[in-house]
């Protein structure tokens, strides 16, 4: 199998990236990723990505937290051997507050876990094919091709108005 070449097209304009992404769909080259300095909804739409599944992690965390909070309060209440007058041992209204706070806390833990797991963080491998200008004022499209298509991909990016960077 021929070794792959990784080439990045660097653009200064969001719209140029969108048009390059559309053009790449009908080309023999493969988009690896698009690096942007901020979340560009135009670009994300052009890439036709599915909705993120982070929400499922958040939901799972929230459900767990709700029962954990309620469970903790109930457990502590039942551990008391001293019953105070006619008050219910398990008081739902005050325990709801504990359940609520735990819901939020564990939903956030789930959210963070989802963000890290799905976003592939922490990982320093991505920095191998990365241009530091992409966190400043450039948008980078990283595409791959076989060695003999290298010139074609370079000129493709140039035609789209981008600057070319070849990674070894």
């Amino acid at each position: 199998m021929q070794p792959k070449k990784y080439i990045m097209g660097l653009f200064r304009n969001e719209d140029q990236v969108v048009s390059a992404v559309h053009a790449l769909e009908h080309s023999p080259y493969k988009i690896q990723r698009v690096n942007t300095p901020f979340p560009s909804h135009k670009i994300l739409d052009a890439l036709k990505l599915k909705k993120s599944n982070v929400g499922y992690f958040t939901l799972a965390g929230g459900i767990f937290g709700f029962f954990a909070g309620f469970g903790l309060a109930i457990f502590c209440a039942t551990k008391w051997n001293l019953i105070v007058s006619g008050k219910p041992v398990i008081s739902l209204i005050p325990f709801f507050i504990v359940g609520f706070e735990f819901t939020i806390m564990f939903a956030v833990f789930g959210n963070i876990l989802g963000l890290l797991a799905l976003g592939g963080l922490p990982s320093f491998k991505g920095l191998k094919y990365y241009d530091p200008r992409c966190s400043a004022d450039h948008f980078g499209i990283l595409a791959s091709c076989v060695a003999e298509q290298e010139d074609g991909l370079k000129s493709f990016f140039q035609t789209q108005g981008g600057e070319v960077r070849v990674f070894d």
Partner: peptide, 26 residues
């Protein structure tokens, strides 16, 4: 954490950030 601002990171980040805001509000 090795953030590169690649589209997949932003896709999850924007969603996660929205949930963060939605949870922080109540």
């Amino acid at each position: 954490l090795g953030w590169t601002g690649q589209h997949d990171q932003w896709r999850h980040y924007t969603r996660g950030y929205l949930f963060f805001a939605a949870l922080a509000t109540p």
